[in-house]
């Protein structure tokens, strides 16, 4: 059963000219799986994650489509009802920079129990007790609950941010670039923790530009380009047999350690601006397989094997050439 269901979602920032950050995105996330949205900066992955969590910045508007989390439509729900019944309890959000998402003046235990007393109506003692449990579940030493954020390392702060998100026992956690800015060894430890949490019943939607980190923890990868999802595949299949030309080029641009003969190649050109109308396939100007149809018609998502991709030549790339 899918826990998250995004149906033809459009997100626009009402600037002049308007920026179409998310265009016609549909995706499903099954329970107890991890979906990673990967893409380069400015591809709309943050806007998508924020629209799903309904925390778009003031100029961001959902222009169409629906988002269902555990059966409830989020985008049009009354704000009060959303706060009372859905936020924290059904889903929670972790932000990129744990150092700035924590309140520097509050002890760790107070930051977690605040959520619990406010949203679950627990008493102070109950809240502290529950905080201990949650902190233990993210392998944070309970002895340091009375520390202030500045006394903790980056990895520990990120663990606290995860613990706060887990406090009300939500089914879904949305993470925005949560491994970015962490050291490699710390990021690896956070990755292990997240995998354990998914195994224990959590559903994760993460966005990241770090493809290595994504393939390490995700069950499914969704590739975004120019505000659209261009491919969704099982992680292993995606790494071995990417369908969309952008996925192919992206994977080919990353140096690999085990194969010194592998020569990575950067993708020429730049991604299109989202403030300009795009006709045809958004990747066509940089795509080595592009033909005339690619400039004329935007490709629909088609299934190839177990994955789907938005390419006119999905599954038969290079055949006609």
């Amino acid at each position: 059963m899918s826990l998250v269901n995004v149906v033809h979602l459009y997100v626009t920032y009402e600037t002049t000219p308007p920026i179409r950050a998310v265009t016609d995105v549909s995706l499903e996330v099954s329970e107890m799986t991890c979906l990673c949205i990967v893409g380069e900066s400015g591809c709309g992955k943050s806007s998508l994650a924020r629209a799903v969590g309904r925390i778009l910045p003031p100029l961001g508007r959902v222009k169409g489509g629906e988002v269902y989390i555990d059966g409830e439509e989020i985008t049009k729900m009354d704000e009060k009802k959303l706060n009372r019944e859905v936020r924290w309890k059904k889903y929670a959000i972790i932000f990129q920079n744990a150092a700035t998402s924590l309140n520097p003046f509050l002890r760790i235990e107070d930051q977690i129990s605040e959520v619990l007393t406010r949203h679950l109506g627990l008493s102070k003692e109950q809240a502290i007790h529950r905080s201990e449990e949650v902190l233990a579940s993210v392998k944070f030493p309970v002895s340091r609950m009375r520390s202030y954020p500045h006394e903790l390392s980056g990895g520990m702060k990120q663990r606290v941010a995860i613990a706060i998100a887990l406090a009300c026992n939500p089914k879904l956690v949305i993470g925005d670039e949560i491994a970015t800015g962490l050291d490699v060894t710390t990021a690896a430890q956070i990755g292990v923790l997240l995998k354990d949490l998914v195994r224990d019943g959590l559903t994760l939607v993460l966005n990241t530009h770090d493809i290595g980190f994504a393939t390490e923890i995700a069950d499914k990868i969704a590739v975004m380009y120019a505000g659209r999802i261009v491919e969704i595949s099982q992680t292993e299949n995606w790494v071995k047999n990417p369908i969309h030309p952008y996925s192919i080029d992206l994977l080919a641009s990353i140096p690999r350690s085990t194969d010194p003969d592998f020569k990575p190649k950067s993708i020429p050109g730049d991604p299109p601006r989202l403030s300009v109308d795009i006709s045809g396939c958004p990747y066509a100007p940089r795509c080595k397989y592009a033909q005339s149809i690619c400039n004329e018609k935007e490709p629909p998502m088609v299934s190839v094997g177990s994955g789907t991709a938005a390419c006119h030549f999905a599954g038969r790339l290079g055949e006609s050439k």
Partner: peptide, 23 residues
Amino acid sequence: RVLMASVPRLEAKGAPLNIVGEP
């Protein structure tokens, strides 16, 4: 070796990590 084990790999899911602590 710890550093190498922490590097996320595309090619193969490596052996489970056993890194303790932080710098």
